[in-house]
Design a protein around this nucleic acid. Structure first.
Lengths: 111, 111
DNA sequence: TTTATTTATCGTAATATTGCGATGAATAAA
DNA sequence: TTTATTCATCGCAATATTACGATAAATAAA
């Protein structure tokens, strides 16, 4: 019964932040996103070489990023061209900026 | 043998981003951080009432945030006053801002 | 000292995540 | 059509995370 997150107890925003943070919560996915930004076009094979993990593992990480909408993939022959979804990234950035910038609203310290 | 993250394959920065993202990857911890910013001083009991989870669960989430350095706790009698570590928060914000702002460096799109 | 209050830790149960070999599906090339 | 290439999916094994009851530890109050 446990190991399950009680998401119904939290706000939409809190769950959204947590879900996107999950996408960032693995170095392979961080590396994939950084590589996609760097190359500005990419196929899965490149990523398998770039990152030292097996092809099914990379494919799984790509699927998670795709499910969240952070990346999109276009089939090009036998390979798939993955890239950042700029619109989703922009709104994600905004969401996290607001969350991270909470300290600018706070004045004092207690301890 | 598996379920273990191969962190040795990634850069210090990639692992740091992933580890801090893990702290944000649960709505309860997002809620705790937001509450600490809002109140600007807090004890665990308040959080148990604020968030609808059992006291040991909240205590566990607080421990994770504390281990990462995002919050610190001062003992005050029988209760503990938890608050944001402003310095750690500032550097975390910087780290994520840089990561999230990668799109501003990119010009075109492929797909 | 005894009792109450508050938080931490232990132990356990259940789900989630990570990783990869084997295999399947889809397209391109021969 | 056969073969090669590339990526997705399945199935499994192992670790990680989440949640909480029970209990311990620490301090305050009586």
């Amino acid at each position: 019964m446990m190991g399950i997150t009680k998401s119904e107890k939290f706000s939409e925003e809190q769950n959204l932040i947590a879900n996107i943070a999950k996408a960032f919560a693995h170095p392979a996915r961080v590396a994939i996103l950084q590589h996609l930004f760097k190359i500005d076009a990419c196929i899965c094979g490149d990523l398998v070489n770039e990152i030292g993990l097996a092809q099914p593992t990379i494919s799984q990480h790509l699927k998670e990023l795709k499910n969240l909408g952070l990346i999109k993939g276009n089939v090009e022959g036998t390979s798939v061209c993955y890239c950042i979804d700029e619109e989703v990234w922009t709104s994600t950035k905004q969401l996290f900026m607001t969350f991270l910038d909470q300290d600018s609203m706070t004045k004092s310290q207690c301890c």
